[in-house]
Design a protein around this nucleic acid. Structure first.
Lengths: 108, 108
DNA sequence: TGAATATGTAACCATTTGGTTGTACGTTTA
DNA sequence: TAAACGTACAACCAAATGGTTACATATTCA
């Protein structure tokens, strides 16, 4: 049952603006590939590749329905990013935590 | 005063594991390049390139001190990621928001 | 001064990324 | 059945990415 791990990690997946836009589209509603393609100025093949990368990161999944393939959002893997960010939040939310880093040197 | 915008956006900057590790190191304390290099199994030149990318994303900055260049963390740009994530949090924190997406189809 | 240290940078390279076109295949529908 | 639709996939390509080695420059210290 051990997943073969993520070939594409979620950080790489969300690094591309096109892929972030795909996620936004799918957050509104599930959509077939052809409909997703309409939102971009690139070929269907290019969009399909982005969908594959997002699928490998398990951020989306697609199901065949007739001749269409319908993709839907799975936001859960984004928790990894959230957890990573949480560590750094203290550095900008809690000024006290920044003292160690900035006080002595940046005294201009 | 208008910044020439970010050549490297923060999403690309944090996409690389090496760069995330650099951020973690600098969150502990500011460090000269040579000390950062010691933490990795790659050349100083390679590390320097990562430092440049992080600098362009304004996640770190370096100051010359004698013959050393000392880098320190600037976590502020990460707020952009946090804001982006906030939009998707409702999809995994608030089950109700997911109804529209999953209820009708995923009824197995 | 001269050696050692720390960094800057040019030139190069393999692989990945992000895109293309062309063709094939399954599904509707007239 | 034949045409139209939606998708899959192979082959190809330019540019970006992530790394290297080699050499130059600036600073410290014996």
């Amino acid at each position: 049952m051990a997943a073969p791990a993520e070939k594409h990690d979620v950080f790489k997946a969300i690094a591309d603006p096109t892929r972030r836009e795909v996620l936004r589209l799918l957050s509104e509603d599930e959509r077939p590939i052809s409909e997703i393609v309409n939102h971009f100025d690139m070929s269907r093949t290019a969009v399909t590749k982005h969908l594959q990368i997002l699928t490998e990161a398990e951020l989306i999944s697609g199901r065949k329905e007739g001749r269409e393939k319908i993709y839907q959002l799975h936001p859960e893997p984004l928790t990894e990013v959230k957890q990573w960010l949480a560590y750094y939040e203290k550095f900008w939310c809690n000024k006290l935590a920044m003292l160690k880093h900035y006080v002595e040197k940046d005294n201009s």
